[in-house]
Simulated assay, not measured.
Amino acid sequence: MAPTPEYADRLRAADLRVTRPRVAVLHAVDLHPHADTDTLYRAAREELPDVSLQAVYDVLGALADAGLVRRIQPAGHVARYEIRVGDNHHHTVCRLCGTIADVDCAVGAAPCLTASDDNGFRLDEAEVIYWGLCPSCAREALEA
């Protein structure tokens, strides 16, 4: 699946120059939600064989800074990236295999949770990670 002009439009809307590495990495993140940098590097190279690992790291940083991708890093895991931004959703993480899945907010609008004490902060986001076993690992654990 080739990247669509939508990627260029997203880059322009974020005041980023449209470059082949940026389009390739944005496309890779779109195709591989919750992927790590190495996975995204391999995916981007399928589209743009001469892109370097450093370029992918740089592009991911620029895309995250511009709000076009979201960087998540559950404790004990490498950074992962997703294209779903701006809705303050959360994640489930499997303790065994590391699978990550999206979870919509349970109640209310951002920040989804009302802090018992905001300490004077103006809250705009809550990061919640639910830990457990994915269906596959839970099945295997029952069979063991």
Rank of each mutant, 00 (worst) to 15 (best):
R22F: 07
V23D: 05
V25P: 01
V25W: 00
L26F: 06
H27F: 11
H27G: 08
A28I: 03
V29N: 05
L31P: 04
L31S: 15
D36I: 01
T37P: 06
T37Y: 00
R42A: 00
A43I: 05
A43P: 10
A44T: 03
R45D: 00
E46K: 05
L48S: 07
L48W: 10
L48T: 14
P49V: 03
V51G: 02
S52H: 09
Q54Y: 03
A55T: 11
V56E: 11
Y57D: 02
D58P: 00
L63P: 00
A64K: 02
A64V: 06
A64Y: 09
D65I: 00
D65R: 10
V69Y: 01
V69I: 09
Q73N: 02
A75H: 13
G76P: 08
G76Q: 01
G76C: 00
H77L: 13
V78E: 13
A79L: 00
R80V: 12
R80M: 09
Y81I: 02
E82G: 07
E82R: 08
I83H: 10
R84S: 11
V85G: 01
H89F: 14
V93A: 04
V93I: 04
V93S: 08
C97A: 12
G98M: 03
T99V: 09
A101D: 12
A101E: 14
D102H: 11
D102M: 12
C105T: 07
A109P: 08
P111I: 04
C112I: 06
T114P: 11
A115D: 13
S116P: 13
D118R: 15
N119E: 14
G120N: 06
G120P: 06
F121Y: 10
L123Y: 12
E125Y: 04
A126N: 00
A126L: 08
Y130F: 14
C134R: 11
C134G: 08
S136F: 00
C137G: 02
R139V: 03
A141G: 02
A141C: 07
